[in-house]
Design a protein around this nucleic acid. Structure first.
Length: 265
DNA sequence: GTTCTCGGCCG
DNA sequence: CGGCCGAGAAC
């Protein structure tokens, strides 16, 4: 038999996730359909709570519609806003898997609280980043970031970034697939210096000696040459950005002058 | 044992 | 009514 079931890609989820819709063939509920998702590893998910539990903080499913597999901004409003008295109870009851831990979807590796706007003058905007950094984490949580890729709006993967050879991954699997994400996360979650794992014991037995305040990266030193190279890269990036902005504004100018001609004709 | 499927509860 | 999940059926 050839692929009877069609598992389709699901753009709203990280790459590799598949969605499947199965129509019920018999019984009282014949005609009704069930929707399932499959993780990149093939694990099956049959409800949004189940999906939330698994994806944790890496994806904000707040406005994710399980049935259609799309992000529905309309769900934002439909989400019951919590009253202040509810917030006091948050520590007790079950966490709201949809919205209790909001994160920016534009950069899910950067754990930063998102301001929930609620139209009440007495509400205070939370400014403590600690809440995000103090949450308990798994020992090698960075491994969850494996496979994250930057992509543009067409979902084309943008070229991967090359890291200096001096930077080496540490931990249960020797690949570098999470190294960039781990370093980027470390830089964004803390203002403390990033040194990598300075204890040599951590290299031999990371499960015991890992310094959890540092990313899964061997200790490294930054040389003057590294700094000069980086300065050059930044200059180059600024230059091409300048060019792009210039070209864009020229294009806009040309476009609007064409519009004018159209109106006058 | 695992996977598939539909029933039925509950919000 | 639809999401979610239990549990029997099917494999």
């Amino acid at each position: 038999m050839i692929m009877e079931k069609k598992r389709t890609d699901c753009p709203a989820l990280p790459p590799g996730w598949k969605k499947e819709e199965v129509i019920r063939k018999s019984g009282l509920s014949a005609g009704k359909s069930d929707v399932y998702y499959y993780s990149p590893t093939g694990k099956k998910f049959r409800s949004k709570p189940q999906l939330s539990r698994y994806l944790g903080n890496t994806v904000d499913l707040g406005c994710f519609d399980f049935r259609t597999g799309k992000m529905m901004p309309s769900k934002m409003q439909k989400n019951k806003q919590r009253m202040r008295s509810d917030n006091l109870n948050l520590s007790k009851g079950k966490p709201d898997l949809n919205t209790a831990l909001p994160i920016r979807q534009t950069a899910s590796i950067f754990k930063q609280p998102v301001t929930k706007v609620v139209n009440h003058p007495n509400n205070k905007v939370k400014s403590d980043l600690q809440r995000a950094t103090e949450q308990p984490r798994q020992l090698f949580w960075e491994k969850r970031l494996k496979g994250l890729r930057a992509s543009d709006v067409t979902e084309e993967v943008i070229r991967t970034m090359e890291l200096p050879k001096a930077l080496q991954s540490i931990g249960p699997d020797s690949s570098d697939e999470t190294l960039l994400s781990a370093l980027a996360s470390a830089l964004h979650m803390s203002s403390a210096p990033i040194t990598g794992q300075t204890s040599t014991a951590a290299e031999k037995n990371p499960a015991i000696w890992l310094n959890t305040a540092q990313p899964l990266c061997k200790a490294f030193t930054v040389t003057d040459e590294d700094i000069r190279d980086q300065e050059l890269k930044v200059q180059e990036a600024r230059r091409s950005l300048e060019e792009a902005l210039m070209a864009d504004s020229l294009a806009r100018a040309a476009e609007s002058s064409q519009d004018m001609e159209g109106k006058e004709a």
